[in-house]
Structures are given as structure tokens and as C-alpha cells.
Amino acid sequence: MAYLFPSPEWFEQLKNEINRSEAYASSAKTWEGDFYFIIKPWGTRQEPVKVYLDLWHGKCRDAHEVTGPETKKPEFVITGTLDTYRQIFTGKLDPIQALMTRKLELQGNLGKIMKAVKATLDLVKCCGQIETQYADQV
């Protein structure tokens, strides 16, 4: 079945994919760092969607949508439109290219991400594994 992006089910599925991925377990084995992924409002929606992702030594410890007040102070915040995320997940846009053209905005240490490019790619592959229906196309 297709999971709706963004939705709590999709993020749960992402956690499963990451924790199933041998490639990610290997390439991100030394990674320590958590994220907010922010999806800008689309359509008639007013509020962005904020997702918390905690990645630790090749595993995903937590992935959930943040709905209440701020509780975390993640190391990285990545912001983009729904369309940009879709293009990245479907392999049409290289994530590094997306950062460099500012289609994805990054707050946090770019150098640390650039040293984990292989892990980044494997993470994007996990996203691509999920059969997805995008919220702006429902």
C-alpha cells in the first residue's frame, strides 16, 4: 500500500526502512546527529510540517511528526517544499545539488554532512523505497 507523505505512518515506515538497510547501517555507522525536516506549506495549508529524525550509529532511533510545542533542539534543520522532497525521493534531484541551489535550506554544519555523503545517499534511498502518495496529489 502507498503511504501518504507527509504523515505519521510514512515516518514510521521510514524508520523501519532505515533500520532494515544494511547499506545505511554500514555507511552511517559513526553518524551521530538529529534533524528537523521541515516541509513548507502546500496548497491551502498554512502551517509547515515538522518532522524529527534521530539518527545514531547507522540506526534510526526516532522519527515522528512534531505537532506540539518545541521540545528538541536538533543539530540540523533542513527545509524544503513538498515538490523538492518528492524530486529527491524519486531520484530526479541530487540532494547535494538541492542544497547547493538552495532548494533545500540547511541550518547546521554543512561540513559534517559532506563527510557523510554516502550515508546521506543511503538515507535518501530508504526514502525512495517507501511506496508514497504525495499530499499535494491526493
Partner: peptide, 16 residues
Amino acid sequence: AEMDTQVVMAPRVPDR
């Protein structure tokens, strides 16, 4: 090599 940005720029990315 795994930490080098260029490693993911090839159309086939080697695993470890």
C-alpha cells in the same frame, strides 16, 4: 574514500 564527496557523484557508487 567514503567520506569524500566525490564518491557519490559516480553513476555507480561502490559499497564498502
